[in-house]
């Protein structure tokens, strides 16, 4: 590098507008959040970790964390495997590739509100799903008020994110040199062997990134959940997002601040571990 020692302070000038806004709307208020998480709701007395204790022993919080974790464990592997499988298929289908991509990305462009009426028709007690179940001899029910709500939400999430993840995999797959496959084929390797010994090892980093972004997007499923079932949905899909929302409506600032601090700390730890992992890979 030309001037490795000389810092380029002018960089700050370009960063300034963004940094000011981020500082003003996110960082400074966050310091206030940390401060408040140790204070009483009324009178601003210092209460130590009392707010944290209240949150951690709160039944709704435990339910919401449990559901959120359960949702992630169910939908992340499902989405990632399905989208990887599709990406591999799509790469082979050169002729219709563009069409397929369009079809799979389309749900990303459809606002959650627009599909609300579709959900209603599909999952109502007298809706299509109920009738379909009727054909197989099951009773129709209000699906969103039962344990099925969880799987309906998983399906929504996969429908919405399949194309996004597929594009991530395609980008990762595109970086693997084609010669490696040709060489392996000459030596008699089949499709499966090629995938297992050539594709998968080189996708390691893509797996991490796709996982992280799918995790981020999973929080957005609240939109669908909220439109499907409102503030207080069936308890199988009562997630952290619902809880925060309801705390907010009740202006339960103390609980919100303590929970927010814990979640940010958790995200920070995940990010640092992820970064470490990447570093080790490199060395």
């Amino acid at each position: 590098m030309l001037n490795k020692r000389k810092w380029q302070m002018r960089g700050y000038l370009f960063l300034l507008p963004s940094l000011t806004g981020t500082g003003w709307f996110v960082l400074l208020p966050f310091l206030d959040v940390v401060r408040r998480s140790f204070l009483q709701a009324v009178g601003n007395g210092f209460v130590g970790v009392e707010n944290y204790r209240v949150v951690l022993t709160n039944g709704a919080f435990r339910l919401a964390v449990g559901n959120t974790v359960r949702f992630m464990l169910a939908c992340l592997p499902l989405l990632m495997l399905l989208s990887l499988f599709l990406a591999v298929l799509v790469r082979k289908a050169a002729k219709i590739q563009r069409w397929v991509k369009t079809g799979f990305l389309l749900p990303m462009a459809i606002p959650a509100a627009s599909v609300a009426v579709f959900f209603k028709l599909a999952f109502d007690e007298k809706g299509w799903l109920g009738q379909l179940a009727g054909l197989f001899g099951f009773e129709g029910q209000d699906w969103l008020a039962s344990d099925s709500a969880f799987w309906i939400l998983v399906a929504c999430y996969i429908w919405k994110n399949l194309g996004y993840d597929m594009i991530l995999w395609l980008a990762g797959l595109g970086t693997i040199p084609q010669e490696q496959y040709e060489a392996a084929r000459v030596q008699g390797a089949g499709e499966w062997a090629c995938f297992w010994y050539i594709t998968l090892p080189q996708l390691k980093e893509t797996i991490f990134v796709t996982g992280l972004l799918s995790f981020v997007n999973a929080f957005r499923v609240f939109r669908e959940a909220y439109l499907l079932a409102g503030d207080y949905p069936h308890e199988s899909i009562y997630m952290l997002q619902h809880l925060f929302n309801n705390w907010f409506v009740n202006l339960d600032i103390q609980k919100m601040t303590a929970a927010a601090v814990m979640l940010i700390a958790f995200s920070g730890i995940i990010l640092v571990l992820f970064d470490k992992n990447n570093e080790e890979d490199k060395e």
């Binding site: 709307f25 996110v26 400074l28 208020p29 966050f30 206030d32 408040r36 997002q241 919100m256 927010a260």
Partner: peptide, 14 residues
């Protein structure tokens, strides 16, 4: 990577 819900309280305060 932070979901909106985590920053909503700080957003509300400011």
């Amino acid at each position: 990577i932070l979901p909106f819900q985590v920053t909503m309280v700080s957003g509300y305060l400011v």
